[in-house]
């Protein structure tokens, strides 16, 4: 039924590796479908003096796309409005997971660089950010994950490919905590309330899949000598 033959709740090929950079305190690399996304975490460090000494840590998230990440034209060098919005919603989503009260007056920075893009970059970035934050040793309440649901031929499907996103009737990225609380929710296109409920149910049902993906990424890292070589992994 779907262009690439997947079932309605079947995910594209997903691969997560952690600890791929030397400098960043924590890092992760996500391959999801044709997406290739690198996440680096810095901090907690002292927040810049211009900012008032806050009760909680400040979180800064920057989502950027490499100029060569799209199959189409050469991208721009400066962040576009889409990238700014994605940075914001990701920051707000991740704020739920990080125990910001542990680091008052501090700042944590999550840097996301999309090297190759194919639909669902923001939920893939969210997964990478969760893994990178754990790799950085930052206190996290719980793991989280996200999936872009969509509507194709009036049916809710999970994990839209780029083609499906362009031709489908709606794109619904949702990120949740393992407990099932929604921390990122967006939609475009026309969807019925029941369809949204269905999308959320289907995403929640994938909890174990993502729990395993994150767990196995750390298991691989610690099953041998720690090796931070992105060039080997990409």
């Amino acid at each position: 039924m779907r262009a690439d033959g997947r079932g309605i709740d079947e995910l594209r090929k997903l691969r997560l590796e952690v600890g791929v950079l030397k400098n960043a305190k924590g890092s992760a690399y996500v391959e999801w479908g044709m997406n290739k996304i690198l996440v680096g975490v810095y901090g907690p460090e002292e927040a810049p003096p211009a900012v008032e000494r806050a009760e909680r840590c400040i979180l800064k998230v920057e989502y950027r796309m490499a100029t060569f990440c799209s199959l189409e034209e050469h991208g721009k060098y400066t962040p576009n409005r889409r990238a700014v919005e994605i940075s914001k919603v990701l920051r707000e989503a991740l704020s739920n997971l990080i125990i910001l009260e542990n680091y008052p007056g501090g700042m944590i920075e999550v840097q996301i660089l999309v090297l190759q893009a194919e639909g669902g970059t923001r939920v893939a970035s969210f997964l990478g950010a969760v893994a990178a934050l754990i790799d950085a040793g930052i206190a996290i309440r719980d793991i989280g994950y996200g999936i872009s649901a969509g509507k194709i031929n009036n049916t809710i499907v999970l994990d839209l490919s780029k083609e499906e996103d362009n031709l489908g009737q709606g794109d619904i990225p949702i990120c949740v905590t393992r407990r099932g609380d929604i921390v990122l929710l967006q939609s475009d296109g026309k969807i019925q309330p029941e369809e949204l409920e269905r999308a959320i149910d289907m995403i929640i049902s994938k909890r174990d899949v993502f729990e395993n993906i994150i767990r196995e990424a750390f298991m691989r890292r610690y099953s041998k000598e720690l090796d931070s070589d992105l060039v080997k992994v990409i």
Binding site: M34, K36, C69, A117, V231, I234
Partner: peptide
């Protein structure tokens, strides 16, 4: 290594 980014019309990575 080269040929690591399929969306680019040529790619390389060096460490």
């Amino acid at each position: 290594r080269k040929g690591i980014i399929a969306t680019a019309e040529g790619s390389g990575i060096a460490r």
